[in-house]
Amino acid sequence: MDFKNILISVDASDNARRAVDYAAQLLGQVRDARVTLLYIERAPGRDRFDTEEAWLSQCRLEHERVFGFLKDAREVLTKAGLPDAAISERTVLCSAEPSVAQTILDVQQEGGFGTLVVGRRGLTKGEEFLFGSVSTKLVHNAKNCAVWVVQ
């Protein structure tokens, strides 16, 4: 695994923005660093919408929001000093199984990423117990890589 091959998992949240900002500060002048921005896409549940049209509209809004975020994240990284050619984006469609955390770990292993960067949502212990925490699962299950959890 190459520690200069960095995977930043993002979800277009403020926490993901902090993870990108942190990585940009640390990596801006690192020679030969390569960054992949990973978005795990999960379609909203159809049962939450009255019509197919409403569901598709929500999917489009989410798509626009995420791709706007990815564009902004790329800009943050290039302004910090990373060459545009050293930054890539990847979107993976994830169903209920495997989990988001497992999907991130699968991408990390497949891509030979030596560094994994994620933002932390800041769940309470009770919320983490009930719902799980992606960052906690990544820290406990990542192999052969450094994990940066940014709060």
Rank of each mutant, 00 (worst) to 15 (best):
R90P: 00
I87Y: 07
R46M: 14
F3D: 12
Q109A: 15
S99Q: 10
R46S: 14
R42Y: 00
G45A: 15
I87E: 03
L38W: 10
G112I: 11
A86E: 11
L27H: 01
L123S: 04
L105K: 09
V100L: 07
Q58E: 15
A23F: 04
I6G: 07
G132T: 08
P98V: 02
R34I: 03
Q58V: 15
G112N: 14
S99K: 02
P98Q: 05
L93F: 07
L93K: 07
S88Y: 01
I8A: 02
L70H: 07
S9R: 01
T78W: 01
D32S: 11
Q58M: 15
D50S: 12
E64T: 13
K137Y: 05
I8P: 01
D2T: 12
F113P: 03
A33F: 03
N141Y: 08
A23H: 05
T136K: 13
K79W: 05
A43T: 10
S57R: 13
S57K: 14
N144S: 12
S95P: 04
L26A: 08
D50V: 11
R74K: 13
T115V: 04
I40K: 03
L70N: 00
G114F: 09
F49V: 09
R90I: 09
I104T: 07
D21P: 02
C145Y: 04
G114K: 01
K79D: 15
V20I: 00
